[in-house]
Design a protein around this nucleic acid. Structure first.
Length: 249
DNA sequence: AACATTCGCAACCGCCTGGGT
DNA sequence: GACCCAGGCGGTTGCGAATGT
């Protein structure tokens, strides 16, 4: 059978919508045959999921949605279908397109910031951490922590501060005022940007980067923490994410 | 106004996985 | 265990619209 390709016509949309609404889609390969469409099953499935399915949200992404995408992409990487589960009415394709067309440019990091923090903290080259999504090590929480080795030039009090841990705060999501009073810090991916980065660096805080892709080691590490240890993750708008929501996927 | 370039989105492609035989 | 098939997913492409020169 010759399958039609390319854009869907309104008539095709109507046929597919009518069929799926009435009979469901238990077998996608049978859908085009029964619906009278000269498309293959995969094409029908895609059209339904990305365009015809009820409850889809149309129009521009809100600021909050974009922040959610950035956050989840930082935790999960290019797991678009998982990210889409947290954005009701948005499809994985839509989120992926948004990422490639706009959001990934937003989290691009200037070279000089990278080199600055690499100079300050030498943990990655020393411990085999490449900063990219390498395969997970056999890291337990403790090994993950000890892999965070501050530069020897740090004062002993700084090292003590780093070793104190047990909570994670994402420093670049916080002003220093918010950070004061918390006895917490952990370096995970260790590269960040923005003015909070500069402030944090000046105060020898070890921080994480909301926008970067987290290595699998980092995700592994986060998963070792209890909910109490994680406490809170702040987003840009001052709201809170529940860590269990972020890591339950 | 005409052409070139960039952007955004829809759709396709190829790979992987899981279930059935 | 090997094979087949359908579904699901992420990467990529193609095209029309928007923008720049």
């Amino acid at each position: 059978m010759k399958h039609t390709r390319g854009l869907w016509s309104p008539d095709e949309d109507q046929k597919l919508r009518d069929y799926v609404m009435n009979y469901g889609h238990s077998c996608w390969s049978a859908v085009p045959i029964n619906a009278g469409l000269e498309r293959n099953g995969k094409s029908c499935r895609l059209r339904w999921i990305n365009y015809l399915r009820p409850g889809l949200k149309k129009g521009a992404f809100s600021m909050q949605e974009e922040e959610t995408i950035l956050t989840l992409h930082g935790l999960l990487g290019n797991k678009w279908s998982l990210i889409a589960q947290h954005l009701h009415g948005r499809t994985d394709n839509e989120i992926k397109n948004r990422w490639h067309s706009y959001l990934k440019k937003r989290v691009a990091k200037p070279e000089h910031l990278d080199s600055q923090i690499k100079q300050k903290y030498t943990n990655y080259s020393n411990t085999g951490h490449t900063g990219s999504s390498t395969s997970p090590s056999s890291s337990s929480l403790s090994s993950c922590m000890t892999s965070v080795t501050p530069n020897p030039s740090l004062e002993s009090t700084d090292i003590a501060k780093v070793n104190k841990l047990p909570k994670i705060l994402f420093a670049d999501w916080l002003s220093l005022e918010e950070f004061n009073g918390h006895e917490s810090s952990i370096c995970t991916d260790g590269i960040s940007n923005g003015s909070n980065y500069q402030e944090a660096l000046a105060n020898d805080l070890v921080l994480n980067d909301r926008g970067s892709t987290y290595s699998s080691e980092t995700v592994n590490c986060l998963n070792k923490y209890s909910n109490e240890d994680m406490v809170q993750i702040f987003n840009f708008n001052g709201g809170d994410f529940n860590i269990e929501d972020l890591l339950s996927v």
